[in-house]
Structure formats: C-alpha cells, structure tokens
Design a protein around this nucleic acid. Structure first.
Lengths: 345, 345
DNA sequence: TTGAAAGCGCTAACAG
DNA sequence: CTGTTAGCGCTTTCAA
C-alpha cells in the first residue's frame, strides 16, 4: 500500500538520494541509473509522500481560496478559473467558504486555510476598517476585490468605477434617460470602497457626463446581491411610482431577479426597460431575455492573482516588495436586455 | 514567523509532549499547566505544522473532490455542500476539475488529488467499462453518481429512474400527452448506467404507466448538457415538426436552454409547452418562467458522501467493508414552467 | 555521479 | 500527570 523511497532505492540498487534526484528531475543522473530507478518506481507503484516533502521543504504545493459562497455563480466561475490557473503551475487549491458573517471571515483570515502555502482571499464583510487584521497574517496573501486597502498585500481587482460608467453610458447611448441603479449599500458610510460604492460612483459619473440629473429615488439600496434581492428591489421600485426606462443592476444575480420582477409586472425588456448587469456570469447568456453585462475579466483576475501569490510564496516573506494592484481589463457585453443582437444563443 | 512546539514547550517550562497534549485536547493535563501552555502558544503565535502532523499520523485532514467543471451550477452547488459537510468535521477540501476529457479523468483517478486522505469522485466520461481503473486506486474513494459500477467502492447517488418517472408523471398529471425528452445519450450502447440512460428509462416507465406511446421523434439525443445544447435540441425539435406539449429536460441547464428557445419561437410556457428539468439548481427559481425540477437531494448526497469517505478513511484500508450504495431522497419542485404556483419569487 | 546521514515538526510509546 | 525518545518519508548538505 505505501511504498517509501527507501524501498525503491533498495530495489534499484541505489541510494535514496538518487531516487530523489530522479523523482525531482534533477540533473546529474546517468540515463541508465535513471531508467533503473524509474522501473523500480513503476514496479512498486511508488508515490512520493507529500506530507514528508512538505515538512522538509516548507512548501505544501497547495494554495487556499476563500470566497463567501461557492453557490453564487460569480464565485463558482472565479474558483473554476483559479483552479485551472493553479493547476497549470502544478498547485492544488483548497477552497474555503468564508460564509455569511464577518466573524467567520475573520477566522478564515486569521487561520489561513490549513495546509497551504498562501491564500487568495475575497472578503465580503471585512472592510478597510479591519485592516489591522492583516497585520497578524503570517502567510502570503493576495486580496481579491478592494474591500481592504492600505495593507501590505497585493490586490487583484476589476475596473468597478469604469465598468459601471461604461454600463450606464451604454444605456445612455440607447437613449435612456431615467436609469435606476440596484444594489447600492444600505449603510452609506463615507470612505468605503465596497464594490457597491465604486459602481454607484461610476453610475453617477456617467449621469454627470450625459448631463442627466441624479435622482435618489432611482438609487435602490439592496444587500446582499442575490436574485431574490433583485426581485424585491425591482418590485419596490415599481411600487414607488417613480418613472424609469432602464436598470443598471450592480451584479448579474440582481439583474436576473430584476428581469423576473419586470416580466411579472408586465414590463417589456428592453422595450419598456433596458437592463444591464455586472459580472457576465454564464447564466446571463440564457436568461429570457439574455442579459447584457459588464465582463470584469475573470480569467485575467484568476491568472494574475495566482501568479502574484506564487511570486510572494517564492519570495519567502510577506512584505519583501511593495503591495501591487492589478485591475483586469473589462468590456461591455450587449445582449437582448439592452436591445443588443442575440450574440450567442 | 515559524514557531515550533519545542519553543512553546521551553517558554511554558514543560516538555513538547505536554504541548502536544494541550494542542490536541488530550486529557490528563493539569488545568494550570494547560493554561500556561495556552498562554505560551498565544504569546508566540504558535500554529501547528500540519505537514509534520500529517507525516506523523499518516493523515492530512484534507479530502479531495473531483468534478468535471465547477462552472456548471450543479457541481458548484454540490461542492458548496461538500465543503460545508467537510468543514463540520474539521476537514479541508481540495477541488480538482477533471475536465472535459476522459484522459484527464483517468489521470485524476490514478493520481488522486495531492495531499489528501481520500477522494470523492464524480466521473463524467468514465463508465463501468473502465472499472478496472479502480483496481489500481490505493486511497479511500467514494463515487458520486452511478457511472462506474461493480468496484469495491461506496457510491452515493440519486434516484435517477424514480425522479425522472415522477417528473414525467407530473407532466402527465397536467394532462400532457406528447412529452418530449431532451438529453438522451447520442451513443446508445446497451447496458450503460449513465444518468441519461436512467432518466430516459424513468421517462419511458412513466409513459407506459400512463398508457402513452413511445415516439422516437420525441427523444432527443444531446450532449453535453449545457444550456446551449438545450437551445439547439429544442430548435431541432421545433423544426422537426413533431407535435409536443411538454418537455422533460434531463437537467436544468438543458431546461433553461429549452425555455429560451421556446420563448424565441413564440411558444408560451406552460400554456403551449410545459417544461420540467432535473437537479433543482438555484437559477431555476429565477428564470422566466421559473423552472419546475426534480430536487435530487444534494445536501443529503454531500453529507452522506463525506460521512462514508470519513468512515473509509478511519477504517484504514480500502476494502474492509463491502461497497455500499446510498440514494438520496428526491422530490418534485413545481414552479411556473409546469403551471405551478410561483413558490418563492 | 552517487552515497551516508542529518534533520524538518510532530505524535505516541514508554517511563517515571 | 509529565518527560524522553524514536521515528514518519523526504530533501539536502557533505563526502566519496
């Protein structure tokens, strides 16, 4: 069942050092010796014990990824991309769900995920005011999203402001004048850098550029950002009686909820109301109508984050280099919900 | 940065054995000694090295989960549930994507996922004909789904035949007589136990019970089971000119594609065509119309699979006990696409 | 180019 | 109740 390097060495008539060299593709092994060792490995079914290797080398070959919940499509797709990026580098990925509350998130950050060389962390509840928690972190860490700023860690994020602005400009370009936004944060403390704050900022910038007035009745606060919340917010918007001819939902789940509530209320999309979301999750391609969105560059985010984490891990310590910030390229995906041509299905 | 048990022991004025006892909640430690050790641990910021523990104990405290792709909602939700179940037992989960092809799946099975005590494996391409691959597996393994039968491993799966039959009976109960099925396997080799084969069997059983004739034109082969495939299959069905008043899609992604294709073709759901899927993924609640489905008991599957794997791991060897098969309880969720009351949104 | 041997940090006998 | 000690399987000097 469990074969050790010793046994392979004995079988091949060499020392374990030589076996180790072969296993790790070190040079300076005579071809015939290598062949003999490889045969012994095959015959015995030897598989290196990664715990021992990890103990010896101080590396586990595994990175952690902490997200709020995998069942949210955005995070599932992100995890998919992260796993693929890690696999390309021969790394495994342990996924932790930091869950619904702040305490759980704090615990995940404090403990890291077990058995990993470093972690990618996408906080939902922790903010810049919790920056001090980062001081106690002893492992390489890359943050996803810009919830926590000012720490010593690398960040990989998206163009929240610019993407939102482009989304609203897209609506303006369709001639829409009364554009509602869904998903502003209920707690409007200043100085926050939550995705909601940034995307609302982009929304306002676009209005300003277009010379359209801001109307507080069009800014709907909702949290969290699940489809049901989109349904609720849209119903409230409809019930409020305020006129609107477009909705910018701060993520696609909200937008999908909005599509549903609009359909139930008999509003046609995009004729009566144009709808655009944010994230470009897979579901948006097949909703009815298909959903326009801001594609935030998920693959680029995953690839860059893993690359940065690997660099930090290989550098050995956490703060050798100044923190870096990478923002992935975004683009607008126009589908039926904004009158776009049905691009795919 | 890295504190060892030795240092904690020195600081607390005890031996490392005592520290070990404290860390692992072993009994027989005087409260005051325990307190002293805990204080030393806190002061030094000691964290046990899991590689060392793993090397010593032969356990890593991590299990593997191999699925085709995390971006498919069914697998994302399954992974979500598995991670939660594992976390309850203090275990981590490494997720591997066995991907699109058979070779990759074979490789994952052969190698296991690195650094794990055992694996949950949900094969998509491997079938019973590949059962011999299981002979070479040396780690505890629990299979999800019934693609591979006859090996020594535990299985956790769903009531594919019964669930499908119930779905079709639901449609029959609505008075539908011309029920199409989407997602039969293109390669109709006999003796296969693929989900598609089983669900088609349930479909036929329900027709037989209802006294409805089978019609090959109503059985549409499609693979894989992504939304686009549902769109394509539904378009072909429409183009074929065969009459139908209901669609049973073998999974929800296909069903969502079908809803889309029907909407584009101007067919009303459920008035003209009732639609039901299988899996009860989250998206179905918010599609337009909301999607009826068979809920396969995902939580139960995850919980049972993890429990079985833990048992196998603790038993030590792979074939101490005869293989077990667990099928989770299912139930029909009736939503708008079959004229059901809109239960949630 | 290969061998011998020393640990990595932890757990579990075994002693006391 | 607590200390001593021997490895777990691997990598890696240091020699040969």
């Amino acid at each position: 069942m469990k074969v050790t390097m010793q046994e392979v060495a004995r079988r091949a008539g060499v020392s374990n050092k030589t076996v180790s060299n072969v296993v790790n593709d070190h040079p300076h092994v005579r071809p015939e010796t290598r062949a003999r060792v490889q045969q012994a490995i095959a015959e015995l079914g030897y598989r290196p014990n990664l715990s021992a290797r990890g103990l010896r080398s101080g590396r586990t070959g595994v990175i952690g990824l902490a997200v709020p919940q995998l069942r949210q499509p955005y995070f599932a797709e992100l995890a998919d991309a992260v796993i693929a990026a890690a696999e390309r580098r021969g790394l495994g990925v342990i996924i932790g769900q930091a869950g619904a509350d702040r305490d759980h998130e704090t615990a995940v950050l404090a403990n890291g995920l077990r058995q990993t060389d470093g972690m990618l962390f996408s906080p939902e509840h922790l903010g810049t005011e919790d920056r001090h928690l980062l001081d106690d972190v002893t492992y390489p860490l890359v943050l996803l999203g810009e919830r926590i700023f000012g720490g010593p860690d690398d960040h990989v994020t998206m163009h929240n402001v610019e993407g939102a602005r482009a989304a609203v400009e897209h609506l303006v370009g369709l001639g829409r004048q009364r554009i509602a936004v869904l998903g502003a944060h209920p707690d409007r403390r200043s100085g926050q850098m939550r995705p909601s704050d940034l995307r609302v900022r982009g929304y306002r910038e676009a209005l300003a550029v277009a010379g359209l007035p801001e109307d507080p009745r069009l800014e709907r606060a909702v949290a969290p950002w699940l489809p049901q919340d989109g349904v609720d917010a849209t119903r409230e918007l409809l019930a409020s009686g305020v006129e609107f001819d477009a909705i910018f939902a701060l993520n696609d789940s909200l937008a999908i909820g909005a599509l549903r509530a609009l359909a139930q209320a008999g509003r046609r999309v995009p004729d009566d109301v144009a709808v655009i979301g944010f994230d470009n999750i897979g579901d948006g391609r097949f909703s009815t109508p298909s959903l326009s969105s801001v594609d935030p560059g998920r693959e680029e985010i995953a690839e860059t984050a893993v690359a940065m984490l690997v660099e930090r891990i290989e550098a050995g310590t956490r703060d050798v280099r100044p923190p870096r910030l990478h923002k992935a390229a975004f683009h607008i995906v126009a589908r039926e919900s904004t009158g776009g041509h049905d691009d795919e299905a």
